[in-house]
């Protein structure tokens, strides 16, 4: 199968993730969409690795996964404590960082 198709898939996934981040209010969903974007990138990396015939892309994909795992830990913690203090999981409620 033509590896370029994987790139199309990655772009599609990324677009879905980005749209989700932009339009959804539920912080959990936004968070999952961010994960989706990360994985879309992973897919693209792996596809490129295949395309170019070297392993660099795969190595970076592993890095991304590690970072994503760490991010999940921190992110979920933030979400939980946010929910605890505000009793809401809407991103629009957390808009205090403005002048």
């Amino acid at each position: 199968m033509n590896p370029v198709n994987y790139l199309y898939l990655a772009a599609l996934l990324f677009a879905i993730g980005a749209t989700g981040v932009l339009i959804r209010r539920n912080v959990i969903v936004v968070f999952m969409c961010v994960e989706l974007m990360l994985n879309a990138c992973n897919l693209a990396f792996v596809a490129f690795a295949r395309l170019h015939g070297n392993l660099d892309g795969q190595i970076i994909a592993f890095f991304t996964m590690v970072v994503a795992a760490a991010e999940v830990v921190v992110g979920l913690a933030i979400i939980v404590s946010l929910f605890r203090s505000r009793h809401s999981a809407s991103v629009d409620d957390a808009s205090l960082m403005k002048l």
């Binding site: 981040v21 932009l22 339009i23 936004v30 991103v91 629009d92 957390a94 808009s95 205090l96 960082m97 403005k98 002048l99």
Partner: peptide, 10 residues
């Protein structure tokens, strides 16, 4: 700077 994470993302 309206504080909405989404608009920053845009």
């Amino acid at each position: 700077q309206n504080g909405y994470a989404r608009s920053y993302a845009v």
